[in-house]
Computed example of a mutant assay.
Amino acid sequence: MLTVGTNIPTPLYARYQSEFGFSPLVVTLVFAVYAGTLIPTAMFAGALTDSVGYRRVAGPAVALAAIAAVLFCCADGVAWLFAARALQGISVGAASGALSAALVETEPSGDRARASMLAAATITGGGGIGPVLAGFLGEHAPLPLLLTYLVELALLALAAVAVTQLPRRARRGIWRFHPPRIPVPLRRRFALASAVSVLGWAVVALFLAMVPSYATAILHRHDLLLAGTAAGMFLLFAAGTQYAVARTGIAGRPTAGLLLLTAGLGMLAGAGGTRSLWLFLAAAACGGAGQGITFKAALARVNEVAPPESRAEVLSAFYMITYLGVGLPVIGVGFLAAATDLLTAVVTFSAVTTPACVLVAAKARATWADTV
């Protein structure tokens, strides 16, 4: 429910832009402020969760998400959007590590691989549902900038009920603030898993922030449902792939996913140059499949090596690094698009990200099997 709500504003930014009169660069900054608040929140939320328990962290996180939805309902200027996105970042930054760790602890048979699959699928699938839902309501429902967030509030009410079923117990004593600490023996494995996740989510960030406008330019149609579907289908492909490969050897190895990401980026750049709808859809399918494999493999590796007594702390550090891959590329692509054009920005992003994916894929192929 949290990740559905987080991505609900994506196709609505075009409506906000026409009503409030701000530039495309502001859209990317509104999008990026989410990562700007999530990252510092994740710095302390994991250790706090290990000290006070899942319920006491997840409950306030859901409440903050609800306040953010109310701010979106009341928005009459861009400052409201910044404030709402900042609260969403705090909410997800607090809850991501806590809820992922809770999935591992509450999995009935203790199957960490299954818990990792569920965590990855709910994050990516929820992220994909949000833009499609908002695009449909934005295009076909009355008062979409109000009704959309009322629907989100109803979803968050269900999430609040679910929070009451989380384990209450804490693992540690009195909490004291400190940055996330990764045990020394785990750092090399943690760093490689984080690099894999960063690359996957950097491509997601490009799709969520830029592809609605990109799709409109390709298809020459201004349709919020089209924009939302264009953004959401990438993550829906990712979630579907995570289930499809769950029982195969691919599920635990990120190399194939990273190579699919590079192919998807190339197709996306080609779609912009040729205005090809089919190449655009292929880019979403290929890139989404790659992201699904890479994120699932990375999250499973972190769950596999994290000590039970500090699992939420290690997972929060993982999400903190991952969302650097969300915020920084969006800002860079936004500035470049403002200085040149959208196609040039997407092509440049692809040219920079592709060799990084290839290098990390080579490293993962050489060492991933040895780091179990």
Rank of each mutant, 00 (worst) to 15 (best):
M233P: 11
M233Q: 12
F234A: 09
F234W: 08
L235T: 06
L235V: 05
L235F: 10
L235N: 11
L236M: 08
A238T: 01
A239K: 09
G240A: 01
G240E: 02
G240F: 03
T241Y: 02
T241N: 03
Q242R: 01
Q242T: 02
Y243P: 05
Y243L: 14
Y243T: 14
A244K: 05
A244V: 06
A244D: 03
V245H: 00
A246M: 10
A246F: 11
R247W: 09
R247K: 12
T248Q: 05
G249N: 06
G249H: 02
I250D: 07
I250S: 06
I250P: 03
I250L: 11
A251T: 03
G252E: 04
G252S: 04
G252N: 06
G252F: 03
R253M: 07
R253P: 00
P254D: 05
P254I: 00
T255Y: 00
T255Q: 01
A256N: 02
A256H: 00
L261M: 07
L261R: 03
T262P: 05
A263E: 04
L265Y: 03
M267K: 07
M267A: 09
L268I: 07
L268A: 11
L268K: 11
L268G: 02
A269H: 01
A269Y: 00
A269F: 00
G270W: 00
G270L: 05
A271P: 05
G272D: 01
G273Q: 10
G273L: 09
G273A: 07
G273D: 04
T274S: 06
T274W: 11
T274F: 05
R275H: 06
S276G: 05
L277D: 14
L277I: 14
L277H: 11
L277W: 11
W278A: 12
W278D: 12
L279R: 10
L279M: 15
F280M: 14
L281H: 08
L281P: 07
A282L: 13
A282P: 04
A282W: 04
A284M: 13
A285Y: 00
A285S: 08
C286R: 03
C286M: 12
G287Y: 07
G287A: 15
A289W: 10
G290C: 02
Q291W: 15
G292M: 08
G292L: 04
I293D: 05
F295Q: 09
F295L: 15
K296D: 11
K296F: 13
A297H: 10
A298R: 12
L299A: 14
L299D: 12
L299Y: 13
A300R: 13
A300G: 13
A300N: 13
R301D: 15
R301I: 06
R301P: 08
V302M: 09
V302C: 09
N303F: 10
N303P: 08
N303A: 08
V305F: 13
V305M: 14
A306H: 08
A306L: 08
A306F: 03
P307S: 02
P308K: 13
P308M: 10
E309N: 14
E309Y: 06
R311I: 11
R311F: 12
R311Q: 14
A312L: 09
A312W: 04
V314A: 09
S316M: 13
S316H: 13
A317C: 11
F318D: 03
Y319D: 12
I321M: 11
T322R: 15
T322A: 15
L324W: 05
